[in-house]
Structure formats: structure tokens, C-alpha cells
Design a protein around this nucleic acid. Structure first.
Lengths: 80, 80
DNA sequence: TCTTGACTTGTCAAATATGACAAGTATGAA
DNA sequence: TTCATACTTGTCATATTTGACAAGTCAAGA
């Protein structure tokens, strides 16, 4: 038995999604702008789903987003 | 045209894997210890693959690992 | 109203992460 | 050598991410 009151999956994904959305908007970028800055192909569909916390993105996808946003990956991953 | 000399996928995964391995060993934990501390089921197979950079883990998996290691998720995600 | 831009959501196929199990490697101790 | 521990790797089935496209919602203007 533990007294852990940790965040669940859905909460983590939502926070990370909001991090991305906040940073993107602070930079004055639309989702289309963002995917335009990403080297490999990516879709606004996926950006939207990640920002909404509807998908459990892989770290490489988040890394590519962090590069397009010009922030460290760790910035996007701040959930605590 | 850009002058980006960004890390590729393989490099990112390797760095994150080494972060996890380093932190785990600093805490004196084996992979078996680590999975024992994770709430939901996870396998040492997956821990090993992530630590070796052989798999592109989802953020939720990394989050669960960060909880077991008692470090912020962002600590694991430091690649820059 | 109509249009445009920004975003969301549904569906699909393909790729791959995950958990599970088995088997293999490596190291160190007895 | 033998054994135990720790870790790696292969394979499998299942689930889900991803990229792509279409269609839908919503708000702001003309």
C-alpha cells in the first residue's frame, strides 16, 4: 500500500499539451507555422491532438516540437 | 535553407536513455528495483530498451520512470 | 451573410511502442 | 567451474502513435 497521489496519464498529457500550446502562442506561431519549422514531416493533426492531451506522444515527436519552438525539450516536459 | 545541425532521433534517444541509467544507478537501483517502484505494469525489457536508446518511448512511460526514480520528468528529458 | 484562418476531430493504413516470455551475455563470488 | 545477479536481445500479440486526408467547429472581418 502506498500513499502516492501521483498524476494519472491523462493529467500528464494535458499539462504537456498546455505547455506546448502556451509556448507556441508566446512565440506568436500558429500550428501551421510550427509544423513548417519542423524538419521531418509532421501534421497539424498530431500537433492538435498533443496540445489537447489526446495522444501519448513519443519523446522524439516532442523533441522535434521543442526544436521548432526553440526551447529545450525539458521545458515542454515540466509537469511537476 | 537552414544551418541546423540538430541531433537526430537516435542521438536523442541515447541521451535520454543514459540519463535514466545514470540516475537509476545514482540511486543504487537495479532495473528490477525500478520496475518494482512503478505503479502500473512495466517490464525490465522496456527499461533496458529505453536505457539503450533502442526504443522511442512515449512520454507517459518516461513519466512513470521519473516517478519511480523520484526525479522530475524534465530531468530525464535534458538533452541540450 | 460569406469568407478566411485557426483549430479540432474522425477515419484509415503503416509503423512501432509496450508487455510478456524465453534465451542469451557478462560479471563476480563461492 | 558453478551459481546467482544484472542486463540485453529476440520474438510475439496487442494497442496506439503517426502522418495523411477530409470534414467539421469557431471566431473575426468584410
Amino acid at each position: 500500500m502506498s500513499n502516492m497521489t501521483s498524476m494519472n496519464k491523462s493529467e500528464v498529457l494535458k499539462i504537456i499539451g498546455l505547455n506546448i500550446k502556451r509556448i507556441r502562442q508566446e512565440k506568436g506561431l500558429t500550428q501551421v507555422d510550427l509544423v513548417g519549422k519542423i524538419e521531418a514531416q509532421i501534421d497539424t493533426t498530431n500537433i492538435s491532438r498533443i496540445e489537447k492531451g489526446r495522444t501519448n506522444a513519443t519523446i522524439h515527436t516532442l523533441f522535434r516540437i521543442s526544436q521548432a519552438l526553440e526551447v529545450p525539450l525539458s521545458e515542454i516536459c515540466k509537469v511537476d
